[in-house]
């Protein structure tokens, strides 16, 4: 299997906005989990800034690239192969609605399509993240206006999180934001 045989999401505006927010957020004492690391750009940048970092991706081509960067990488879906508590969880989710579906490449779809409305995988993530956060744990996720920023923030609130927008960028007609979530005590 060569890397070019399969699709790996190339770092883009959404990657860099999350990276910027993560570099601001991470503490030396943090145990960090990145879900959907792709080729590991964010995980690599945080390796020496956290106590410990673990990353996951479902795409075998992506996990191979991340492994070469000395990242502790696991091939699994969301939190499926994970247990334990983390201080900081990062996720640049597939957030496009399924009208962007590409018949040719399933890895392309897995990296970009978040379900019929684009919200499904993000909601699945928010449904279970409380089990993986330490007492003071927080998460950072990227959301686009194409997904519905308010919808996702309302959903996170309904799951017991305080949320705030910590980064924002406009790209033509799209607005992408990084949302930080902390569990309400």
């Amino acid at each position: 299997m060569k890397e070019e045989d399969g699709y790996i999401y190339k770092p883009n505006d959404d990657t860099f906005i999350l990276l910027d927010a993560a570099l601001d957020e991470v503490k030396k004492t943090d145990i960090v989990l990145e879900i959907g690391t792709g080729c590991g750009v964010i995980a690599e940048a945080l390796l020496k800034k956290a106590k410990c970092l673990v990353a996951t991706d479902i795409n075998p081509f992506a996990t191979r690239v991340a492994k070469k960067k000395e990242i502790n990488v696991i091939r699994t879906y969301l939190f499926d192969g994970i247990r334990g508590k983390f201080d900081l969880v990062l996720f640049n989710p597939p957030y496009l609605p399924d009208d962007a579906y590409n018949e040719e490449d399933k890895w392309f779809n897995l990296a970009l399509i978040g379900g019929p409305t684009g919200q499904e995988i993000i909601k699945e993530f928010l449904d279970s993240i409380d089990k993986y956060l330490s007492n003071e744990g927080r998460f950072l996720i990227v959301i686009s206006s194409l997904t519905g920023i308010e919808d996702i923030m309302d959903f996170a609130k309904s799951k017991g999180f305080y949320t705030e927008i910590v980064r924002e960028k406009r790209i033509f007609f799209e607005r992408i934001v990084v949302i930080k979530g902390i569990m309400k005590k």
Binding site: K67, V73, R75, G81
Partner: peptide, 8 residues
């Protein structure tokens, strides 16, 4: 596989 656990 090649140092990567496949938990699927």
């Amino acid at each position: 596989e090649d140092g990567i656990p496949v938990l699927l």
